[in-house]
Design a protein around this nucleic acid. Sequence first.
DNA 1: TGTACATCAGTGAACGCGCGTTCACTGATGTAC
DNA 2: TGTACATCAGTGAACGCGCGTTCACTGATGTAC
Lengths: 231, 231
Amino acid sequence: MAKTRRERVRAETTIEIKEVALQQMAQQGAASLSLRSIAREMGMSAPALYRYFPDRDALVTALIVDAYNSLADSLEAANDGQDVGNYNGRFRAVAQAYRNWALAHPAEYALIYGTPIPGYIAPRDETVMPAARTNLVIGFILNEAAQAGKLTIPDAYFHASPDLQAVLDELAAMIPEEDVLSAGVLLTIYIFSRLHGLVWGELDEHFAPKIADSGELFEIEISEICDRLKL
Amino acid sequence: MAKTRRERVRAETTIEIKEVALQQMAQQGAASLSLRSIAREMGMSAPALYRYFPDRDALVTALIVDAYNSLADSLEAANDGQDVGNYNGRFRAVAQAYRNWALAHPAEYALIYGTPIPGYIAPRDETVMPAARTNLVIGFILNEAAQAGKLTIPDAYFHASPDLQAVLDELAAMIPEEDVLSAGVLLTIYIFSRLHGLVWGELDEHFAPKIADSGELFEIEISEICDRLKL
DNA sequence: TGTACATCAGTGAACGCGCGTTCACTGATGTAC
DNA sequence: TGTACATCAGTGAACGCGCGTTCACTGATGTAC
């Protein structure tokens, strides 16, 4: 069934709205996203946008979902570009992809991992799944490597209290594809948190000036992570 | 020289303005800070605030400087509460203080470490010093422990390129008090980044729901850090 | 100590601005017969 | 294939709102003689 001209134009306009929105967020921060200024930039009147999104929050939600998916796509592509058995290569490629994506899409990165936009509440239904994809890419690599005996999970991660252990087991059980170690869930959380810390410090310039530009700061820490995990 | 009644009232009002500002930021996010709503809450007219701060940005700057100092005070107090030679105890106490402060002051935390407020540019002159204090507390502990042979800096941190090495040496030389290892500077950056990653995930709920509430997630990772550093 | 003057906190009105959203409309595109 | 009608993208005016900031002012507090 061929799409009508109207449908095609509509799809293109929807994409353009989101692109302009991202552009403006990149320039002025995610919090100052404004329908009127998007319309102005596009040469439309503001009410026209209501043909595409029921309100401002719906646009924000769409942007968030897109951003999560775009990031996850990047990580998956990086993962798929490596030999399955090369866990070290897969991890490094995915970590680099994470940083590269953040540098290339600072507005989207701030949108999903930065301070939430005031007054906006993300609808969990729509955002949880795309958000999880990113974590799963990292989680699978680490878990598979651990199962294959190519990664040593630090001892501390095996000493969770019964309460925490129960939560971890529950999370591990939610993933049907593989046998997931609960210590691996913990490891994944920590690695993800660590990657974020590095990228955040670089993007928002919380480290000393000039120090992170080259990406070497990031690479050294990735190496240290691999050393620590004997990966 | 006793302060006049006027001076005392003025100081109190200044403090109240900042307190109300923080309250409102805690409720609605840092970006929606508004002079008018502060004045409303205080039962004053908005122009009156201009007796205390020349403009909105000056208030934001004052809040940022206060927040940095408050955090640094907490960390220093935690550090001072331990035996000087007990590096492990000092590190753990400071790390916990970092988390505790963030949980107790989420608005301030978001203000200094969250996404910058759109349109606001921090005056480096005023904010760099207070911001550095926090890093120095952690840095001194790690560096002193390393010097005392009670901490092993991971191998990867000794393999910086000449360019990066030069920047690290420069940073190390900026601290006159002690002999600072350039690898220790690197270590401090990474540890700080890691602490932030943990607290960010907990505050903004980027980990699985319910998982971080107890603080155990944080404690386990601190233990892992100590293990890794043989601290 | 009392008085005249200077300082300063705070007010209310007003400025121009941009925002999200609603409404009644026009005109082009698509569909049913 | 041609015509009548339905759908839908987009417009311009208007709504009520809150914002930062300026201005001319009032009245209380502090200071010099």
